[in-house]
Design a protein around this nucleic acid. Structure first.
Lengths: 150, 150
DNA sequence: ATTTGTGCAAATCGTTTGCATCTGA
DNA sequence: TCAGATGCAAACGATTTGCACAAAT
């Protein structure tokens, strides 16, 4: 929606691009045009939950010429270096979450929509011990939602 | 359920089949040979977490001649009528859980293995309000595990 | 007799990969 | 220069579907 090119006001496009370049470089990734452009879409405004397909459409809609393969590769690489996290709520498609802090999710299956829940809004006060030989990597709370009957 | 003396010895195959027939019929499903056979594999012994592919292999290994399509259809139907629940922890494949009571899961990604956690072993003492117009359908807690470093 | 289920193979969908060609450090 | 990235199309793997036949009510 908001153009990537119309940043003449406060935050310049150059500033944003520089920040994102640092982000990529800091993660050990080469700063390439497709990565930078996708990073702009992903991290340009607030936290997002994006599927590969959706990001691809968005990129094309914004006039970028990236291939699906690059979108997939980029998302996977961003996840590998910790810039994104994958959320598994739907076997049909993967979601990537730009919020990498500890938090949880609402999921509205009917709308394929994810909503963040702040970590402190959920209190898991009792947890089982993990089986011998295993450590807890992460505790995910997913609250599945249904439209209330009108 | 069944008379006491019938259980004293061993549970006969016929008894099991009868129970499962009731289960299917009670759920509004026609009792067909493939369904009964798959139900036996699924519900015959304890709670299980099965992928469609795994169940198909198991069925064939047991000498059954069912098609993959039937395995998929059957699993989906069983889920639709509430005999099974799907667990989404891996985007690669779906798991079906024969335990339909409220409970949670450990997931060992490296081994593609699910482990049940009794509902009372987890205490979610604080939950956020669901967004307007939506009701909570289910709260899922998934604890992802890693092998501890030796 | 009519509805529903089954098997087979082909189709679908999201995702990955091989390879020739570019590009950033 | 040259390892690493990109695009394209083909390959893939899990799941679904169309259709002719078989079984259940």
């Amino acid at each position: 929606m908001t153009a990537i090119f119309e940043q003449e006001t406060s935050i310049t496009a150059k500033n944003v691009a520089e920040d994102l370049s640092k982000k990529l470089a800091g993660a050990g990734l080469r700063v390439t045009a497709p990565r930078l452009a996708l990073a702009q879409l992903l991290f340009g405004k607030g936290n997002r939950h994006v599927s590969a397909e959706a990001l691809y459409e968005e990129a094309r809609g914004a006039g970028l010429t990236v291939s699906q393969a690059t979108v997939y590769n980029t998302l996977n690489q961003f996840e590998a270096v910790g810039l994104l996290r994958q959320v598994q709520v739907d076997q049909a498609r993967s979601y990537f979450d730009t919020n990498i802090d500890t938090h949880h999710h609402f999921y509205v299956e009917a709308e394929a929509r994810l909503i963040d829940i702040a970590a402190n809004a959920v209190d898991v006060s009792k947890l089982p011990n993990s089986p011998d030989g295993y450590d807890i990597e992460r505790v995910e709370v997913i609250i599945r939602l249904d439209k209330s009957d009108a």
